[in-house]
Simulated assay, not measured.
Amino acid sequence: MRTALVVGTGLIGTSAALALVARGVTVYLADHDPQQARTAAALGAGTDEEPPGPVDLAIVAVPPAHVATALADAMGRRAARGYLDVASVKGGPRRELESLGLDLTEYIGTHPMAGLEKSGPLAGTADLFEGRPWVLTPTRDTTTDVLNLALELVALCRAVPVVMDADAHDRAVALVSHMPHLVSSMVAARLEHAEEAAVRLCGQGIRDVTRIAGSDPRMWIDILSANPGPVADLLSSVAADLDETVQALRALQSSDDAKRREGASGIEGVLRRGNAGQVRVPGKHGAAPTVYESVVVLIDDQPGQLARIFADAGLAGVNIEDVRIEHAAGQTAGLVQLSVVPSAAPVLVAALRERGWGIRQ
């Protein structure tokens, strides 16, 4: 691939353009808002000038509701040898393209499983897709040339290709992305009018659950409007679980021992099903989940503290598998939770204590 046209210079489009430019591809940028395209160009994502002729690949990075229109326009102009979109839903746009009578041999639907809570070209980054799954949904009509162009794009963005059926993809993202986003928003909504004293008690758990609720509502309306059925089905199941959980909690309030036991059993069932589902979440590099041990270190909120911890861990020959930080309320200090393989935990604890770090048991 030598040339590409990116239509839509938001987070995903700009990030893909930055990655391609970094690997020597000439990228042309287009957007319904010329200022946004100029911003992406100023960031080094390519040029907002018109391409002199057909490019190798046109990448349509617009909201799902506008994918078919943007693709139809690009195909009508013969803007490229191959065409793909990066929308978060695949079945609906494909059926809309079919209804327009377009030749889909030169098109493939794709979806990079990467994103941020921020949007727009200024949030773009060339490494957004590195190591992340990038779903490809070819059909029997997709040509080998177009599939290879899509695979080359994924490779240039250093993502991991995953081939799926379009409708299976939409059911999957409803489960792992769209439904969780709504649940996160509903939990976060409980905080809107909560007492300040309660909100000040927020810890890492509530931060984890509500992090994605900070995303742009307009963007999510576009996404959910294109995949409402599968998301509604999942939320219906969650609602049934909520009803049962509420009943179990009410039973725990009873003065009747039998009802309390029944309520405790119901709550335990919910928690255990949660355990069973959580362990299926892929671990590091997409491999099977690994059980790590946590070493919790007390640090001051000062420059260089994390770098010192990592350097000291490196000197001890310990690899940090994951890290989380919980800031102490009202203090310039925090707790750093270092995840390591169980056999390395005693070694790390001893090394950090020797170097003066406070370890929280």
Rank of each mutant, 00 (worst) to 15 (best):
A19C: 09
R95S: 12
L84S: 01
R171G: 06
A287T: 12
R250F: 02
A329Y: 13
G205H: 11
T139C: 11
V336L: 15
Q253Y: 00
R94Y: 14
Q305H: 13
R78V: 03
A155L: 02
S185Q: 15
G120M: 06
E152F: 06
I267A: 11
G283F: 01
D208R: 06
A287Y: 13
P346M: 08
G10V: 04
Q247M: 04
L149V: 00
S185K: 00
D322S: 14
V291T: 03
A313K: 01
Q278C: 05
Q305V: 14
G92T: 07
E96R: 15
T39V: 15
S15V: 08
M164S: 03
G109S: 13
T143L: 09
D165P: 11
L191F: 13
P161H: 08
M75L: 15
H327Y: 12
P63H: 12
D312K: 06
E152M: 09
A123I: 07
I223L: 12
A58H: 04
H181D: 06
A58K: 01
G269P: 02
P93L: 01
R77T: 09
L249C: 15
E117H: 06
V163L: 07
D257E: 13
M179V: 04
H285Y: 10
A41T: 05
K259S: 10
L128S: 07
M186V: 04
G101Y: 10
V187M: 07
G358W: 10
G82A: 13
S215A: 15
M113T: 03
V281E: 02
T3M: 04
G286K: 02
H181G: 05
A41G: 14
T143K: 08
P180C: 07
G44P: 05
L20Y: 00
E326V: 09
L348M: 11
R261S: 08
G91P: 00
S184Y: 00
D208P: 10
H327V: 11
V135I: 09
A123R: 07
T142E: 02
S265H: 15
P63F: 11
A45V: 07
R280C: 08
I12L: 14
T105S: 12
L156G: 06
I309S: 02
L182M: 09
D31I: 12
D243S: 13
E49A: 11
D56P: 05
V291I: 13
G76H: 08
T142P: 14
V146G: 02
H327C: 07
D141K: 14
V6L: 09
V281K: 05
L298K: 14
E50V: 15
D73K: 06
T125E: 13
V296K: 03
I206G: 00
I221Q: 09
P180M: 06
G283V: 08
V146W: 03
P64I: 03
G330F: 03
M75H: 07
L338W: 00
Q305I: 10
F310C: 11
V231H: 01
A42I: 02
L71Y: 00
R308T: 15
A61V: 07
L315R: 15
V349W: 02
D300V: 12
Y28V: 04
I320N: 01
E130W: 08
R211D: 04
G334Y: 08
A80H: 13
A251Q: 13
V347M: 07
R211T: 04
A37K: 02
A150I: 06
L156N: 08
V341W: 07
A79V: 04
E106M: 12
